[in-house]
Amino acid sequence: MYRPGAYVVTERAVEVENLVKRYPKSQANAVDGISFSVPVGEIFGLLGPNGAGKTTTVGVLTTRVKPTSGCALVGEVDVTLDPVTARSMLAVVPQRNNLDRALSIRDNLLFHAAYHGVPRPEAKARAAQLLDQFGLADRAASKPEFVSGGQAQRIMIARALMHSPMTLFLDEPSTGLDPAARLFVWERVRALRERGVTIVLTTHDMDEAAELSDRVGIMDHGKLLALDTPKSLTRALPGSQTLDVTVELAGGDLAQAVKAFQMLEGVENVETVDDDTSEGCLRTRLYVSGEASTLLVPVTKVVTDHQMNLTDARIGKPTLEDVFISLTGKALR
């Protein structure tokens, strides 16, 4: 990607140190002392449930939110001290549609380029190319008033790319998209990484975090609980397989049953998963060192011995969801 101007070599696209954000009149910190750095050319995923502080973190990095304390750098530029330079190097695709409704889709792209000083002929060529690439060419002249969520997302990504940002922030890029649109976004994100663009994305979708990110930071209540490649994160969990056991309590004692699960041969760890399954049902997750299938019979016996009914049993590999559960004791959704 050609960019005019003086070149300086940098290693870090994003750097955050002890970042704290407390909104005015708020009781708790929305972001509570997080630190991480993202090398140039990486896809970095921030994974966390609603209210974890993902959007706030992105807001600080994109100069829209004033940090309470700590420090945030984009392209080694401090976003608080020099927001103007920082803005020229980054782009953001926000969680909600903020397209300019007074302008056509093409003009949304062209004016964005103009704000960033891209020369007119270059902007026109790039807009034509992006509109084509994102399947927007036939609607380019119409206003973005009645576009669907997926189309708005595509327009906003195309708009963000108009000034060739070094770092692209995507806030929940595939929430509300159908599977095909989601794959399309993933494909575009990977293509951007190929061209050396650094990408920071937020998501509450495990698959997206695991599939797309080189590294994942897991956030909850404003804190960064873990940060590593998806592989290392899951590898750090005990056991090589999981067995999810859902039981109907029916008056039985779950605590006793969990103890009994723990005694079973091959069970490394047992966790009670706090998610909203149907009433009276509880899910426990067994981390198993060997073949989980060999445990099905003993588990069933434990369940019936404790006067409970087995409603579901599922064998799986540890995923990011398990990492999240083991870190927070609750399911992500």
Binding site: R3, P4, G5, A6, Y7, V8, V9, T10, E11, P39, V40, G41, G75, E76, V84, T85, R87, S88, M89, H116, G117, M166, G196
Partner: peptide, 12 residues
């Protein structure tokens, strides 16, 4: 990995 960064002053 490293990449060039455009350090030209933005044209305000």
């Amino acid at each position: 990995m490293s990449a060039p960064v455009d350090r030209q002053r933005p044209r305000v």
